[in-house]
């Protein structure tokens, strides 16, 4: 809205004093909670549905812990990137943005590697209800990380064209993508806990 961009303070002219973009992102993340909530519930429901295939014992907790740690750290990098653009330091902003995206990519590579190992060990998408639930849940999350990486890449690219600068509007955009990124991280913590950490007999 024309009136929003003209005003100095973020969210000025709105009823709640929150920029529209940010409120929209919160609404979207609220909706995402139900997406992941439903997928996680289905996974828990199907823990026993392993058929003839392998069950949760197949998971390599130390390996996934490392990639989880990388993803967690990327949230920190995202915070640094936001702080940089708010300070008006575009060089620092670019570095941290790229760093966040690269850490996201590292996580994704870990996921791809993990999948290939599982398939080799005899657990593919079609093996059992359990395996389908696992792959669909984690890949759905992976798609979210990928979209985040794409958006971070776009931010980095646009910081060179001038579309992303130190303006209020750009800061709100970065903040929003940051919100999304943190959300995807938090969801992973939840998935990691439910899928990898909690012993199966506690859930069934």
């Amino acid at each position: 809205m024309a009136t929003d961009t003209e005003s100095a303070a973020p969210g000025a002219g709105t009823n709640f004093g929150v920029p529209n973009e940010k409120m929209g992102m919160w609404a979207f993340l609220g909706s995402e909670c139900l997406f992941f909530g439903a997928f996680i519930s289905v996974y828990v429901l199907y823990l026993g549905g392993t058929g003839d295939g392998p069950g949760p014992a197949i998971f390599d907790i130390p390996f996934t812990s490392v990639s989880t740690f990388v993803l967690l750290m990327s949230s920190l990098a995202m915070v640094m990137a936001l702080a940089a653009i708010q300070d008006g330091d575009m060089r620092r902003f670019r570095t941290w943005t790229l760093g966040t995206a690269l850490m996201g990519l590292t996580f994704l590579s870990g996921q791809v590697y993990e999948y290939t190992v599982f398939v080799e060990e005899g657990m593919g998408l079609t093996t059992s209800a359990f395996s389908t639930a696992f792959f669909v849940l984690t890949s759905f999350h992976g798609v979210h990380v990928s979209i985040g990486v794409l958006m971070l890449g776009a931010l980095w690219f646009m910081s060179f064209t001038g579309r992303i600068d130190t303006s209020q509007r750009s800061q709100t955009a970065v903040e929003n993508i940051g919100l999304y990124w943190h959300f995807v991280d938090i969801i992973w913590i939840l998935i990691f806990t439910v899928v990898y950490l909690i012993p199966v007999d506690l859930l069934t």
């Binding site: 199907y46 026993g48 549905g49 079609t126 093996t127 209800a129 359990f130 389908t132 669909v136």
Partner: peptide, 9 residues
């Protein structure tokens, strides 16, 4: 996939 396939759990 096997979400609703009875024979796969």
């Amino acid at each position: 996939g096997n979400f609703f396939r009875v024979d796969a759990g």
